[in-house]
């Protein structure tokens, strides 16, 4: 891979509340640039970001806390 000099390297952190779309945006940024040929989705658990086994277990999902906002239960991932 090409070596980039200091002026051509940008470091960004995607931050935000759960489900704001950080992982999907990351996937899209790589796809648009042709780094990956297919976009994974958070639902199918095949994104580059979510590769840790624990994120895909039923237990992990049960542990997820939830908040009540405007009378609705919002589960967070």
């Amino acid at each position: 891979m090409k070596t980039y000099d200091e002026k051509h390297i940008k470091n960004v952190a995607l931050i935000g509340a759960a489900k704001s779309g950080k992982t999907t945006l990351a996937e899209t940024m790589l796809f648009e640039a042709g780094i990956i040929s297919r976009r994974g989705t958070v639902e199918e658990k095949n994104t580059l970001s979510d590769y840790h086994e624990i994120e895909h277990t039923a237990e992990a999902r049960c542990m997820q806390p939830h908040y009540i906002r405007n009378g609705r239960i919002i589960r967070l991932t």
Binding site: M29, L48, S49
Partner: peptide, 14 residues
């Protein structure tokens, strides 16, 4: 993660 966009490398931390 990393991506490359028009002569720049963007390191993306999700």
């Amino acid at each position: 993660l990393h991506t490359e966009w028009k002569d720049y490398k963007i390191n993306v931390i999700d």
